[in-house]
């Protein structure tokens, strides 16, 4: 049974880590990072390493998202109000994937995501 658990957890960690890399917007990345952290915590628990799981949870559930989001906020604010509303000629504005960001072909997202990375 334990082997099955180990395999499940490893697959989940691999999947969420890949997703964390594939998602390009830092805010969304922070969300995937939270799920990756939780998967890692379960993996460490399954490996019977509760101390490591606790460390992972302590850092991964609040501290990392807070640092990432505060940094994103500072950078976006520094870019000025024009970029904020997504009307400027920016390449990587925050509104790239927002549903109300204007007429944007649904297929165009992936390509732009790739281009801005």
């Amino acid at each position: 049974m334990n082997d099955a658990l180990v395999v499940i957890c490893l697959l989940l960690v691999a999947a969420s880590a890949t997703a964390a890399v594939a998602v390009r917007d830092p805010e969304r990345q922070a969300l995937v990072l939270a799920v990756l952290g939780l998967s890692l915590a379960v993996l460490f628990t399954v490996f019977q390493a509760p101390d490591v799981a606790l460390s992972q949870l302590a850092v991964g559930s609040v501290l990392t998202p807070l640092l990432v989001l505060l940094s994103v906020r500072k950078v976006r604010r520094g870019a000025g109000p024009k970029t904020r509303r997504g009307t400027g000629p920016d390449r990587g504005g925050r509104d790239r994937t927002r549903p109300d960001a204007g007429p944007q072909p649904p297929g165009g997202r992936g390509g732009r995501d790739g281009a801005t990375g």
């Binding site: 334990n2 658990l5 499940i8 989940l12 997703a19 995937v32 799920v35 998967s39 379960v42």
Partner: peptide, 24 residues
Amino acid sequence: LVAAAVLLAGGLGAAVWGVATGPL
């Protein structure tokens, strides 16, 4: 352990998908 494995495989698998795609 079986319950945990089922929960993780089904739930957390769906969660990875849900958090990586779709609207914010």
